[in-house]
């Protein structure tokens, strides 16, 4: 079992003829993902990464029955690409693009609420169900099939924690990077809810970071609605206020909101142990299993 993606997922890659799009489409196919098409305006009829390219997502869905998309489109055009995915009623759209203007994302977010499509990202590494499918840029070789779910705001931190788990023989049901931007589609709570409902997920790891209040809200959700044990990690304990730590969303405001301390306290209050190191997170997970 898994959440959101599996070996039945039929993927269209938006922006498949660009450098990033082509490289990662090939990587996804090599991993065993069912990539069925690409969509690039003006490139219909061509072939890229061994799959047919269509001018629109709609055509790709018509011709190849795609039900999910991965978006590798430059920031200036990325919101448009997400709208196209949403308006084509795909089940899932994964936006990898970093640097989409926030006001564009506010409009996307509004439209998202009116559709049944799930959006992951933007500015995220994607999603992987080990052994079945990966949609995004995650390095497939560090993941292993297993029974731990993982949700994280950061890419390489996800890899680090997964590596700590896999090294100990702890595999994953699905791992999800939700992205480091201020406005994102799938939230911690959406992913946690799905892991809670997944029969094969026996424990969950949640990796948060400074900025915003999503981790606090997720902690409340865990306390009230989850039986599956959760272990946490929060990056940015040493971040000074007012400085953006790489991610657009990773900033502690001057008034003290979004601090690591407030997030760790909220998680502890919900019964979630928070590791001081990634290794300690793996210790907690091991104790759950």
């Amino acid at each position: 079992m898994s959440i959101f993606v599996d070996d039945d997922t039929r993927v269209v890659v938006q922006g498949i003829t660009g450098g990033e799009g082509k490289f990662h489409a090939e990587q996804m196919i090599e991993y065993g993902t069912n990539v069925v098409a690409g969509a690039v305006p003006g490139k219909g009829g061509q072939e890229a990464a061994g799959v047919p390219v269509y001018d629109t997502v709609d055509e790709a869905v018509e011709a190849e029955d795609a039900d999910a998309s991965v978006i590798f489109v430059p920031p200036a055009f990325a919101a448009d690409a997400v709208f196209e995915a949403l308006d084509t009623d795909l089940d899932l759209a994964v936006a990898i693009t970093e640097g989409i203007p926030t006001q564009d994302m506010a409009k996307v977010n509004k439209r998202l609420g009116e559709t049944d499509t799930r959006l992951l990202g933007p500015n995220c590494p994607g999603i992987i169900t080990p052994g079945e499918a990966k949609l995004g840029i995650l390095p497939g070789n560090i993941f292993a099939d297993g029974n731990v779910g993982l949700v994280s705001r950061s890419g390489t931190l996800t890899y680090q924690v997964v590596d700590n788990l896999t090294e100990r023989g702890i595999g994953q049901t699905t791992a999800i990077g939700i992205g480091g931007d201020p406005i994102i589609g799938t939230s911690f709570i959406d992913a946690l809810e799905a892991f809670e409902a997944d029969a094969e997920t026996d424990a969950v790891v949640m990796c948060g970071e400074i900025g915003g209040e999503d981790e606090e809200e997720a902690a409340r959700f865990i306390g009230e609605h989850m039986d599956t044990p959760v272990a946490g990690f929060i990056a940015g304990r040493t971040a000074p206020p007012g400085k953006r730590m790489g991610h657009a969303g990773a900033i502690v405001s001057g008034s003290g909101t979004g601090t690591a301390e407030s997030k760790i306290d909220a998680l502890n209050d919900a019964g979630v142990p928070v590791g001081d190191t990634p290794e300690e997170v793996a210790d907690h997970v091991e104790s759950f299993l």
Partner: peptide, 9 residues
Amino acid sequence: GAGLVMTTL
């Protein structure tokens, strides 16, 4: 990667 660098700090 921002998250991993923050973690290293």
